[in-house]
Design a protein around this nucleic acid. Sequence first.
DNA 1: CTTCTTACA
DNA 2: TGTAAGTA
Length: 149
Amino acid sequence: MSGNHKFFSPIDIHKLIFRIGEVSKICNVSPRQLRYWDQKGFIKSSRHDESSSRVYDFINLVRIGLIKSYLDQGYTLKAAVEHTDNKQETMRNIHRFLDHTVYGVKNTNGHTMINLGYFDKEKTSYLYGYLDDNNDTVYKVVPVDKKLD
DNA sequence: CTTCTTACA
DNA sequence: TGTAAGTA
C-alpha cells in the first residue's frame, strides 16, 4: 500500500521564512547565539548574498527551538546539536512513514478513524486505527465494501 | 527600525 | 555570550 497523497500542505512551507529577530523572540535565543551557531555550522541560514540578512525557514526554526530546549536541559551545545540531529531524523522518518501509510480519514460515531490501508494482500478489507475515549489505541479490520457508520 | 561585522569585556 | 560602534 502506498500513500494517496491526500494530505498535502495548502501552503509552501519553504516560503515561510523568518529573520533573526523573529527567530530570536520565538525560540528565546539571542541573535548573538544564532550568529555564533551559524558560524559554527550548527544551523544553516540562507542569504541572498554575503552581508545581507540571514533567513531561516520553518525547518530551521524548529531546529533552533530543539537545540535551545536541549541546552536548557543542561546539554552542551555540541551535544544539543547531536540530539537535535537525531530528533529531526526521527521526525522525518515518522512523517515519511505516515505519508505512505495513512490512506484516508473517516469520522464515525465520535471517533476519527484512520484508514491504514489494505489489511490483506487480496485487498478485501482495510485496517483502521483510532483512539477511544481513554485515548487507548484501537485497531479494526473492516471489509472494503462495508459502510463504517 | 532591523541586521551585519568587528572588537572588547 | 553580551554589548557597543558604525554600516547598509
